[in-house]
Simulated assay, not measured.
Amino acid sequence: MDNVYHTPVMLAECIEGLEIKPNGIYVDVTFGGGGHSREIIKHLGEKGKLVAFDQDADAQQNMIADDRFIFVDQNFRYLKNFARLHGVIPVDGILADLGVSSYQFDQADRGFSIRFDAELDMRMNQSGDLTAKQVINTYAEADLHKIFGIYGEIQNAKSLARTIVTARLNGSIDTIADLKNTIAGLIPRGKENKYLAQVFQALRIEVNQELEALKEFLFQAADILKPGGRLVVMSYHSLEDRLVKNFIAKGKFSGELEKDIYGNDDRQLIAISRGAVTASEEEIKINNRARSAKLRIAVKK
């Protein structure tokens, strides 16, 4: 099952970044196919513990049968509450792999992929309320403009928003094919896949509130780590990577690092590596998803 899900990117680098202590408590907040979790468990002694989070019901097919393993079927924005519930605070290390699993992309009916036609869904948590169809059909033009411009980093975001709002006056845009047909005239020649991928990325981030969830997660992760504990986060696009980078560097997401009159700062974390760790050429050849991955490792002060 794990292979169907996806090959974990930079697995060795992630495990090395966690510096696993045999009797430590670790959290994998993006369980998915369980590739990272299985590797972490191999490094744990009998008193070690691993807590894994995943809000996608499909991930539960990959559960690990091991007394040291606890599974939480929630979004990682609830990290602190559920770590407290299971009595595992403070923890020694936290791992987040922010990529959508290739398994989710390959489930045609989930509406994540431009390769299939399906309802515009894109919910990571299948019981969530908001779908991509609702975003496309009900959001105001200004909000769509913002989502496509900021989350999709799309050049003609304004025209894109206007085109969608105009088209939906004639009838609702329900499927991936409907959306592609609606915006066909705006797609730059020869860049069809890239453009559609950016549109889909923007919708997916909005539907799943991914950036808000990431911010909440980072604050809580810094809180529940032991001094000397490790945070290892892998991102696949610049928006996420910027949030992670700023939080590690400044303890917040924008503005400058604040210091008190003694020159002490508020940061709870210190970066371990200068800049982000990226995948080797060999790995990128085998696994194309590794191309855009950026890994950041920090230790709690």
Rank of each mutant, 00 (worst) to 15 (best):
F219Q: 06
Q61W: 00
A59Q: 07
K259C: 14
H145G: 01
L203E: 09
T138M: 12
D266S: 15
S101N: 07
R189M: 04
E16S: 15
A83N: 13
I270H: 02
R267K: 15
G251D: 11
D265Q: 01
I89C: 10
K250E: 08
A108G: 12
G33V: 11
A279C: 02
N75H: 07
Q60V: 00
A279V: 03
G263Q: 13
I284K: 01
T278L: 05
R289Q: 12
D56K: 06
V91T: 14
D174E: 12
R242W: 09
K215V: 01
S102P: 01
K146P: 00
L196R: 04
A197H: 03
E16I: 07
L144T: 10
E256M: 02
E13G: 05
L50N: 09
D174W: 08
H86E: 12
I286D: 07
Q209W: 02
A118R: 04
I173K: 03
F53K: 01
N3G: 08
P8G: 12
Q155H: 09
S159K: 15
E281V: 10
L196S: 11
Q134C: 01
A65H: 07
I272A: 10
I272M: 15
G32Y: 10
I20R: 12
V27D: 13
H237P: 08
G128D: 14
N246S: 12
L98I: 06
K80D: 12
H237R: 13
D54A: 00
D106R: 09
I284Y: 07
K49V: 09
R230L: 05
V100H: 04
S101R: 04
E258K: 14
M63P: 00
T7D: 00
G185E: 04
Q55K: 06
A249S: 14
E283K: 04
P188A: 11
M234T: 04
A177F: 15
I64L: 10
A52D: 03
I270R: 15
N137F: 06
Y26S: 14
F82E: 13
Q104E: 06
R189G: 04
A177Y: 13
V207D: 05
A108D: 05
Q126F: 00
G33I: 01
I224M: 04
M10R: 01
K259G: 00
I224S: 11
R230W: 13
G24F: 10
I150V: 04
N137T: 08
L160C: 01
Y262I: 02
D266W: 12
L239W: 07
P90V: 15
G35Y: 03
K21N: 09
F219L: 12
L18Q: 09
T163N: 13
S127E: 13
R123W: 08
L218T: 04
Q55D: 00
A222S: 12
I114V: 08
R296H: 11
R123S: 02
A96K: 03
K250F: 14
